[in-house]
Computed example of a mutant assay.
Amino acid sequence: MLTVFAGIAEFKRSLIAERTSAGRLAAQEKGVRFGRPPKLSTEQVALGHRLRDEGISVRDVAHILNCHHATLYRAIGTYVIRPTL
């Protein structure tokens, strides 16, 4: 009897997984973005680029934009490569 119940539960679980993945694909096709919302808007990223090009340090620009410097590095794609000792 327990084997029958286990088989039914496994079947129902596979149906749920199929419906969930189909729903996610449909949402992605509609343009739904999954995950955490971005910290910086496109305007803030553009401002970060401009301020960085003007010679202001990334940490100072991050302070102006009220974000962590690593977030700004990721957003503007400027990485400082430090030599290893």
Rank of each mutant, 00 (worst) to 15 (best):
M1V: 07
L2Y: 07
V4T: 12
A9G: 14
A9Y: 14
E10Q: 12
F11A: 15
K12V: 14
K12A: 12
R13Q: 14
I16L: 07
T20Y: 05
S21K: 10
S21A: 07
A22W: 00
G23Y: 09
G23D: 04
R24K: 13
A26I: 11
A27D: 13
A27V: 11
Q28I: 14
K30V: 09
G31L: 11
F34D: 00
P37M: 06
K39E: 01
L40W: 06
S41G: 08
Q44V: 08
V45E: 06
L47H: 09
G48Q: 06
H49E: 09
R52E: 09
E54L: 14
I56R: 10
S57K: 14
S57W: 09
V58W: 08
R59A: 08
V61N: 00
H63V: 02
I64C: 02
I64Q: 01
L65M: 04
L65C: 07
L65P: 05
N66R: 02
C67Q: 04
C67A: 01
H68W: 04
H68R: 08
H68C: 00
H69V: 08
H69G: 06
H69T: 02
A70L: 01
Y73R: 12
T78W: 02
Y79P: 00
V80D: 07
I81M: 03
R82G: 13
R82F: 05
L85F: 13
